[in-house]
């Protein structure tokens, strides 16, 4: 049995039904969720810069 992600606020999210029995979701509003996503991308950009001066693009 595999359930798939739902889309909420334009992002993929767990189906809330999957977090009922063992561990539950907390209160987290849309702005806080957006903030996490934004921070993640910032962090990933930062990580690239730690390893080389630049990331090259794929061939045409």
């Amino acid at each position: 049995m595999v359930r798939h992600a739902i889309i909420k606020y334009g992002h993929f999210m767990v189906d809330p039904d999957d977090m009922q029995d063992v561990i539950r979701q907390q209160e987290l509003n849309e702005e806080e969720i957006e903030r996490i996503v934004k921070y993640r991308w910032m962090y990933l950009d930062w990580m690239h810069k730690r390893f080389a001066d630049k990331v090259v693009k794929p061939p045409e």
Binding site: H11, P16, M19, I23, Q25, Q26, I36, R40
Partner: peptide, 19 residues
């Protein structure tokens, strides 16, 4: 709590983060 992967990489998806 921000750098925690539970927040940064899963907090948005699971609607549950490290606090």
């Amino acid at each position: 709590e921000l750098r925690c992967p539970n927040t940064l990489f899963g907090g948005d998806f699971y609607k549950r983060r490290t606090t």
